[in-house]
Deep mutational scan, measured.
Amino acid sequence: ATNIVSKVKWYNSTKNFGFIEQDNGGKDVFVHKSAVDAAGLHSLEEGQDVIFDLEEKQGKAYAVNLRIK
Rank of each mutant, 00 (worst) to 15 (best):
residue 31 V to A: 01
residue 24 N to R: 11
residue 40 G to K: 08
residue 34 S to R: 10
residue 3 N to A: 09
residue 26 G to V: 09
residue 32 H to Y: 05
residue 42 H to P: 12
residue 31 V to I: 10
residue 65 N to A: 04
residue 38 A to L: 10
residue 45 E to W: 15
residue 60 K to R: 13
residue 34 S to T: 12
residue 59 G to Y: 05
residue 64 V to C: 07
residue 6 S to I: 04
residue 37 D to L: 15
residue 8 V to C: 04
residue 3 N to M: 07
residue 39 A to I: 08
residue 47 G to W: 05
residue 42 H to K: 13
residue 22 Q to M: 15
residue 44 L to S: 00
residue 39 A to W: 03
residue 40 G to F: 07
residue 22 Q to R: 14
residue 20 I to T: 00
residue 50 V to A: 02
residue 42 H to M: 12
residue 11 Y to P: 00
residue 10 W to A: 02
residue 34 S to M: 10
residue 20 I to P: 00
residue 43 S to P: 07
residue 5 V to K: 11
residue 65 N to K: 07
residue 42 H to C: 14
residue 50 V to N: 00
residue 30 F to P: 02
residue 40 G to D: 06
residue 9 K to Y: 03
residue 15 K to V: 09
residue 51 I to S: 06
residue 23 D to I: 15
residue 10 W to G: 01
residue 53 D to H: 03
residue 58 Q to P: 06
residue 31 V to L: 07
residue 41 L to C: 08
residue 48 Q to N: 06
residue 5 V to P: 09
residue 68 I to K: 07
residue 38 A to S: 09
residue 1 A to N: 13
residue 31 V to N: 01
residue 21 E to M: 15
residue 56 E to C: 14
residue 60 K to S: 07
residue 66 L to S: 00
residue 52 F to V: 04
residue 8 V to Q: 01
residue 41 L to W: 11
residue 56 E to Q: 12
residue 68 I to E: 07
residue 47 G to Q: 06
residue 9 K to F: 03
residue 66 L to A: 01
residue 11 Y to N: 00
residue 1 A to Q: 13
residue 39 A to C: 05
residue 41 L to N: 03
residue 59 G to K: 05
residue 25 G to V: 08
residue 50 V to T: 02
residue 32 H to E: 03
residue 16 N to V: 03
residue 51 I to Q: 08
residue 42 H to A: 13
residue 51 I to E: 09
residue 9 K to I: 06
residue 47 G to C: 08
residue 31 V to C: 03
residue 33 K to Q: 11
residue 27 K to D: 09
residue 39 A to D: 01
residue 2 T to F: 14
residue 7 K to H: 09
residue 64 V to D: 03
residue 9 K to T: 02
residue 24 N to T: 10
residue 10 W to R: 03
residue 37 D to P: 01
residue 12 N to S: 14
residue 47 G to D: 05
residue 51 I to L: 09
residue 43 S to C: 12
residue 67 R to W: 04
residue 25 G to F: 09
residue 9 K to D: 02
residue 34 S to Q: 10
residue 50 V to R: 00
residue 16 N to R: 15
residue 45 E to I: 14
residue 39 A to K: 03
residue 58 Q to N: 15
residue 51 I to D: 04
residue 14 T to C: 14
residue 53 D to L: 04
residue 33 K to E: 03
residue 4 I to H: 07
residue 18 G to F: 04
residue 45 E to G: 09
residue 35 A to Y: 06
residue 11 Y to M: 02
residue 45 E to V: 14
residue 9 K to Q: 03
residue 10 W to E: 01
residue 20 I to D: 01
residue 47 G to V: 02
residue 64 V to S: 07
residue 43 S to G: 13
residue 56 E to Y: 15
residue 67 R to H: 07
residue 22 Q to G: 15
residue 9 K to H: 05
residue 61 A to V: 15
residue 38 A to P: 02
residue 50 V to H: 00
residue 1 A to W: 12
residue 43 S to F: 12
residue 32 H to N: 05
residue 30 F to G: 02
residue 59 G to L: 05
residue 62 Y to P: 02
residue 12 N to T: 06
residue 25 G to H: 09
residue 55 E to C: 14
residue 56 E to A: 09
residue 21 E to I: 15
residue 40 G to T: 04
residue 21 E to Y: 15
residue 43 S to A: 12
residue 3 N to K: 06
residue 39 A to F: 03
residue 38 A to I: 09
residue 30 F to E: 01
residue 36 V to R: 00
residue 5 V to D: 06
residue 51 I to A: 06
residue 27 K to W: 09
residue 66 L to Q: 00
residue 6 S to L: 05
residue 10 W to S: 02
residue 24 N to L: 10
residue 51 I to C: 10
residue 39 A to E: 02
residue 19 F to Q: 02
residue 57 K to W: 12
residue 14 T to P: 05
residue 22 Q to F: 14
residue 68 I to W: 07
residue 3 N to V: 06
residue 3 N to D: 12
residue 33 K to N: 04
residue 21 E to A: 14
residue 17 F to H: 05
residue 48 Q to A: 09
residue 24 N to I: 10
residue 47 G to K: 06
residue 4 I to A: 06
residue 6 S to A: 15
residue 27 K to E: 08
residue 29 V to D: 00
residue 52 F to S: 01
residue 23 D to H: 15
residue 48 Q to V: 09
residue 13 S to E: 10
residue 5 V to W: 12
residue 2 T to Y: 13
residue 32 H to G: 07
residue 15 K to I: 12
residue 11 Y to F: 09
residue 5 V to A: 11
residue 64 V to R: 07
residue 60 K to W: 10
residue 45 E to P: 07
residue 62 Y to T: 07
residue 51 I to P: 00
residue 55 E to I: 14
residue 7 K to S: 05
residue 41 L to S: 04
residue 41 L to D: 03
residue 62 Y to S: 07
residue 22 Q to E: 07
residue 14 T to M: 12
residue 14 T to E: 12
residue 58 Q to W: 14
residue 62 Y to G: 03
residue 17 F to Y: 15
residue 14 T to Y: 12
residue 5 V to N: 11
residue 62 Y to K: 07
residue 32 H to R: 03
residue 21 E to S: 14
residue 57 K to Y: 14
residue 37 D to Y: 15
residue 37 D to K: 14
residue 61 A to T: 14
residue 66 L to K: 00
residue 48 Q to I: 09
residue 63 A to G: 04
residue 9 K to V: 04
residue 15 K to E: 04
residue 47 G to A: 06
residue 14 T to F: 13
residue 26 G to S: 11
residue 21 E to K: 14
